[in-house]
Design a binder for these strands. Structure first.
Length: 417
RNA sequence: GUGAGCGUAGCUCAGCCGGCAGAGCACCAGGUUGUGGCCCUGGGGGUCGCGGGUUCGAACCCCGUCGCUCACCCCA
């Protein structure tokens, strides 16, 4: 037996409806905020990701699905969506028009990680990018849109966390100061912190070990170390959010795992997700375009994890497009008529179920009941001779004989919808 | 990469101290010649993850292995 690949999943009837629901709601939302869809390839040149995400990040170091194709090119299954979108914009010159370019995408991403709750090797993201504006209003509008989205899909328990990690001007200074301070308290910190101090000092701020906290609290925070431009930008974003009455927390420990972020970063988290508590993550990436060889173009974007939204969605019936009619022919002599009747009903737009195997009436009505189909049309040779159909309302159990011409049947169905 | 838990029917799981592989749900048939839901009776279904070891005898004990899940790490 050949099994599915670790960290992938088959989305089956019964659960797929939640995915479709999210995608439909997202499309509605994006349309209202002026976003157009973009679809980029599922693989790219490896260099696109190593240059944009950062060669020292976990994603590039150990999580990419990279392979050599028959042309001896190094290709990578996309681990995230922003770099490909920016690449496509540069390549197709989408910055040419006036104003900001607003794009959204949805589809699978790939990272080689150990799967756990809310984390997969193939996972689905819905994301959007706003390119060509450095206005703090962009940052605030995107966050406001996401809060609106959460309301529309009825995820009511979440926290918005924002931070500013500075820009290419002020971040190097901050990092140097941070490194120096960490070095001073290093012997007091846990093993993880000692490791992080070398690889990613920002991560030390994120330590959860109780005994470390008094020392970590003495470290300088990102928001207190911003240059004037970054500080003004951050204040403007906060002010815009407050005007929209969006509740947020400043989390100076919020550090994103991709190198291209500058200034604003944000996350929306939920506590119903297991250890992976981020529903959405995003931020500003003003240097990304240049970093992959494009013009100087500012950007702000986010990605949300569809699997995580599905976990956080309230339990209710997401199924749409229900079957309406169950055809119950009595005996194989009637099956040819049943096939023709099913075709006629379907052509009239009536969702109709017809079992392929010949079964007893009892079994057929039981099947109609299990499938939740509201009406059954029952006919044997007697009915066909009289040009009638027994029309049964499965909910009430009432049943009447109706002339078998299509108009009469449609009339009976429609008066009962 | 590290750690823990779990693999028995389509699904959820029980199976004691090693002694004939089970239940509920689902499915099929009958009870009712052509009428669902409730009820009753019956039926089909199993490589007990896989391989080895111990034993008269292993789903059960031991070793190995594969898979899944959760957590660390990191992230959406």
């Amino acid at each position: 037996m050949i099994h599915r690949i670790k960290g992938t999943q088959d989305l089956l009837p019964g659960q797929i409806e939640k995915w479709q629901f999210l995608e439909q709601k997202a499309r509605d939302l994006f349309a209202r905020y002026g976003y157009s869809e973009i679809r980029t390839p599922i693989f790219e040149e490896t260099e696109l990701f190593s240059r944009s995400i950062g060669t020292e990040t976990d994603i590039v170091q150990k999580e990419m699905y990279t392979f050599i194709d028959k042309g001896e090119k190094s290709l990578t299954l996309r681990p995230e969506g922003t770099a490909p979108v920016v690449r496509a914009c540069i390549e197709n010159n989408l910055f040419a028009g006036s104003g900001a370019t607003k794009l959204f995408y949805m589809g699978p991403m790939f990272r080689y990680e150990r799967p756990q709750k809310g984390r997969f090797r193939q996972f689905y993201q819905i994301g959007a990018e706003v390119l060509g504006s450095d206005s703090p209003d962009v940052d605030a509008e995107v966050i406001e849109m996401l809060v609106q989205f959460l309301q529309e899909v009825e995820i009511l328990s979440y926290q918005v966390q924002i931070n500013s990690i500075g820009c290419h001007q002020c971040r190097p200074q901050y990092l140097a100061a941070l490194r120096e301070k960490i070095a001073g308290i290093l012997p007091r910190l846990c093993g993880d912190c000692n490791r992080r101090a070398a690889t990613n000092p920002l991560r030390v701020l994120d330590c959860k070990v109780e005994e470390d906290q008094p020392y970590i609290n003495t470290l300088p925070s990102t928001v207190d170390s911003l240059c004037e431009v970054c500080r003004d930008h951050f204040l403007a974003v906060r002010k815009a959010l407050e005007k929209q009455e969006i509740r947020y927390q400043i989390n100076s420990r919020l550090v994103r795992g991709l190198d291209y972020y500058e200034k604003t970063t944000f996350e929306i988290t939920s506590d119903h997700l297991g250890a992976q508590n981020a529903l959405v993550g995003g931020g500003r990436y003003d240097g990304l375009s240049q970093c992959i060889g494009g013009p100087e173009v500012c950007g702000f974007g986010f990605a949300l994890g569809q699997e995580r939204f599905v976990l956080a969605l309230p339990e209710k019936d997401y199924s749409g497009g229900r079957l309406q009619i169950y055809l119950a022919p009595l005996g194989p002599e009637c099956s040819e008529y049943a096939v023709a009747l099913a075709a006629r009903l379907r052509r009239q737009g009536v969702p109709t179920f017809l079992e392929f195997e010949s079964r007893s009436l009892k079994a057929q009505l039981r099947q109609a009941d299990r499938l939740g189909i509201p009406f059954a049309l029952i006919f044997g040779l007697d009915e066909l001779q009289r040009k009638e159909i027994q029309c049964r309302n499965m909910r009430t159990g009432s049943q009447t004989a109706i002339s078998s011409d299509i108009e009469s049947l449609l009339g009976w169905i429609r008066t009962r919808e």
